[in-house]
Amino acid sequence: MSLLAFGLKPGSRTGLRPAWDEEPTRAGLAVKGVTLVLVCLAVLFPVWVVVVTSLSSVRTITDTGGLVVLPQDITFVHYRELLAGGQVTRATLVSAGVTFFGTLFSMAVSILCAYGLSRPGSILHRPILMVLIATMFFGAGLIPTYLVVQGLGLTDTYLSLILPSAVNVFNILVLRAFFMSTARELVESARIDGAGDLRILWQIVMPLSRAVIAVITLFYAVGYWSAWFNASIYLTDPDMLPLQNVMQQLVIKQQKPTGLSQAINTGQLSPLAIQMAVMVLALLPVAVLAPFVQRHFRQGMLTGAVKG
């Protein structure tokens, strides 16, 4: 990553800087550039090491004495073993399923609610809004929430990973603010033309709100994908656990993956590379998806803050 790649050619008038702004000195630019690269490396370097180690062979890992910084050989053997059925495969599928259905459910509920509250002057919308917002100021507490989930018979079902965290009031407020600000006139005229609310939502409001919907979908999806705590208290069957919990067992608690200990003991697989591969499985979906939605983040973060 040279400075040039970042567009930091010192001394040249870029045209981006207004005339009154002094041109930075070469030294100043260099310091800034190096700092920026270091800051970015603080994020990227650990991820790089994890990825490279997960792709390294047992021999490379033994040679380097552990983590691999410079790739020497690339092998997918650890991924193949992990995804050939068994604990990690199952956990990955569980996480994918919970994330998919959870996000779908959360989005449906949130979009409907946001739209339902978006018409000025509709009946009861103020009290309902208060009921929603109040939940942002208090938490009922861990114990009573647990008791309610248990009392409803949701423990040991995947519903316990979805329902208690399905609605995020902040996300609803962001969606609502967006719905209210976009296409007022279009919505009005559609209503005058006799379109029903579902139709307006589906054919006018949602297509116009793609950006914010993408952001909120990502927020929900990341929330479900990253969650581990609810699974740790609501699920007792180890076979039901999602990826994050299995990762906790394998990496933080340093347990050996069930079914692979034979191959690890005989030196065919590296326990370290296995751990790294599990970590890559957990980070890959978000690392791939987040940048696509990135340019909309600001919109998603801020609209909710500006309008009630």
């Binding site: 479900y224 969650a227 705590f229």
Partner: peptide
């Protein structure tokens, strides 16, 4: 929001 998984919110 007190409860662990509200990371979404955070996320959010």
């Amino acid at each position: 929001m007190a409860h662990g998984t509200t990371d979404t919110r955070g996320t959010a």
